[in-house]
Design a protein around this nucleic acid. Structure first.
Lengths: 159, 159
DNA sequence: ATTAAATAGTTTATATGTATACTATATATA
DNA sequence: TATATATAGTATACATATAAACTATTTAAT
């Protein structure tokens, strides 16, 4: 498809202004984002909605307080409100007001949401294997190693 | 800062469901996005606005048609309209209606936009060097090589 | 030449994200 | 106890993104 092919070509402007590493990292990010979007769109959700669903799926059966979810996902309170609104509209999640501390709202997964999430997790696991099939095992471990060093360097040079 | 540190830790849910490579790639993307956001925010622009500015800066002095910019950036027409609106409001760009083909609108950089963009490009170049200072030269070229192979594999397995 | 189709840009609806103000409730302090 | 502060969630304003409908204009086709 055209968009992925173009993403592979890269950006005209970065050639002259940035380190080749940053160029390739940004291209990789963009490609990864694009294929993730396509994967999750085929299930009628977004990557972010998937994150919420998996957190609830892996979390306690009593559900989780909205602010707990927000902290795990590193997104703001207002954003969680909107995400839960839309997941509730899709029937995957419901809200329960805490009767002891009436400020708190628990997000609880519905039966439908549970089955749906289980399926998407399974398919996602298979999908990630598929898109990495062309890399050798040594290449994978080398890449992991390099990426971790890179992450640490970037974070510590930006604090 | 808290957010970057947390991004380094990774996502609780991916440990069990995805290949470690995808995990580290997503972490790297998130960290890179976060530090880019912070860099560009300090200039009062976004990464996307910077892309528009650089395209105009490097482009012909007569300016460029909105749809040309959109094609280079891989974003939709409506998005370009909004981006040019906001850059115009900031005084970095102005619109000129094409008198020959009256459907077309040219985005032209102002003198202020030109000086501003030149400065940000210079600073960005220095900044990318800074955040990659901890990587050895061989590590950088190895990373580039692996990322290119990865990109190709992902794109071709997704077509 | 008149009509149909393509093109360029804007507008609108929706999703996603932040920051900030606001409401309600709970906790700490004086 | 009364007041101040902190906390939880929602509402609002804005930036960013897409898709789809719409307007205006140009080009192609009959």
């Amino acid at each position: 498809m055209a968009k992925l092919q173009k993403l592979l070509e890269g950006y005209i402007w970065v050639d002259e202004i940035a380190n080749q590493v940053v160029v390739e990292l940004k291209k990789t990010s963009d490609i990864l984002e694009e294929v993730h979007n396509r994967f999750f769109e085929s299930y009628g959700i977004s990557n972010t909605k998937f994150n919420v669903l998996v957190i609830l799926y892996k979390g306690p059966s009593e559900g989780m307080i909205l602010s707990e979810i927000g902290e795990l996902m590193l997104v703001t309170k207002g954003n969680i409100t909107g995400l839960i609104d839309r997941l509730e509209k899709q029937g995957y999640v419901k809200r329960i007001r805490d009767e002891i501390d009436r400020r708190k709202v628990t997000a609880l997964m519905t039966e439908e949401g549970n089955l749906f999430t289980k399926q998407v997790i399974d398919d996602y696991r298979e999908w990630t294997k598929k898109i990495l099939l062309h890399l050798e095992t040594e290449e994978k471990s080398l890449l992991i190693q390099l990426l971790k060093k890179l992450q640490n360097g970037i974070v510590h040079s930006s604090l």
